[in-house]
């Protein structure tokens, strides 16, 4: 009996993990199916676009700026070991566009947006606002979830594009002012080595990360437990799961896009 208990516990955890994956998948499928069926709530979509996209610009921009600068310093220091300091502009650009722009942008949006969506929807659930929506002949999935998921899927690639540009700018500023690069040569190296797919793959990743962030925020918010503790737990679960899924999805997408 004592020997089988740990195995039973592992089995129980595996089963509950599989059940959670199933519930999230069904939730995502339902949300996506509602994307194509009226009614559409344009006003709610625009509001979500502003909340998720526009208001995340400062945090994503600042993150990219400092990351680009630090990346330039690191590559310069590392490159000096092989007399390869000249690769700083191209590696900063490729690193920002392919990896750091989308991943750090996605993680910052996860922290800011998944938490706020989960807390907002969780509070709405606890205070019966979601039940009220149903009694007012409004489908909560269409009214609350679909606009947020669509807005995040469209806004995060735009944030990534802005973040990439600011990150490269950060590298440029550090390169020119601290590492004595020639400004024109730095820009030429950046443009010459950066390929279309470097940027496009980052934007596709951004769209996937935006979808994940909103999905986790909405799923945990709509299924929040009772009371302040329930909302707190939902918020934490939304941020943690969104962050882990972003990193996992990043690896999978990188394998798909760049494995030889």
């Amino acid at each position: 009996m004592t020997l089988t208990r740990p195995i039973a516990a592992i089995g129980h955890n595996v089963l509950s993990l599989l059940a959670s994956i199933g519930r999230v998948s069904i939730f995502a499928a339902r949300a996506v199916s509602h994307l194509f069926r009226p009614p559409f709530y344009g006003r709610e979509f625009l509001h979500a676009l502003v909340q998720i996209g526009w208001l995340s610009l400062p945090v994503v921009g600042l993150t990219a700026l400092f990351t680009g600068g630090a990346l330039a310093l690191q590559i310069y220091a590392g490159g000096a070991r092989f007399s390869a300091e000249a690769v700083v502009p191209s590696i900063v650009a490729i690193g920002m566009a392919r990896e750091l722009g989308p991943v750090l942008g996605g993680l910052m949006v996860a922290a800011r947006v998944a938490s706020s969506i989960a807390a907002e929807l969780g509070t709405m659930k606890v205070t019966e606002q979601i039940d009220a929506l149903v009694t007012l002949s409004t489908n909560p999935m269409k009214y609350l979830t679909v606009p947020r998921m669509l807005a995040a899927t469209l806004a995060v690639p735009l944030l990534v594009a802005v973040g990439d540009s600011i990150g490269i700018l950060g590298g440029y500023v550090v390169g020119v002012t601290r590492l004595d690069f020639n400004a024109a040569a730095y820009l030429k190296n950046t443009v010459d080595f950066l390929e279309f797919w470097d940027v496009a793959s980052g934007l596709v990743k951004g769209a996937a990360f935006g979808f994940i962030v909103a999905l986790m925020g909405c799923y945990y918010g709509m299924n929040s437990g009772r009371g302040a503790q329930g909302v707190g737990r939902a918020t934490k679960a939304a941020v943690v799961s969104a962050s882990v899924l972003i990193l996992a999805a990043n690896y999978i997408l990188t394998e798909v896009f760049f494995s030889a």
């Binding site: 205070t127 009220a132 007012l136 002949s137």
Partner: peptide, 19 residues
């Protein structure tokens, strides 16, 4: 369902107003 719910009004315990 829509036609059914259109016949109802409900006052919730805490008001359930949309903030």
């Amino acid at each position: 369902r829509d036609a059914f719910l259109a016949r109802f009004g409900m006052l919730f315990q805490g008001g359930a107003l949309f903030d």
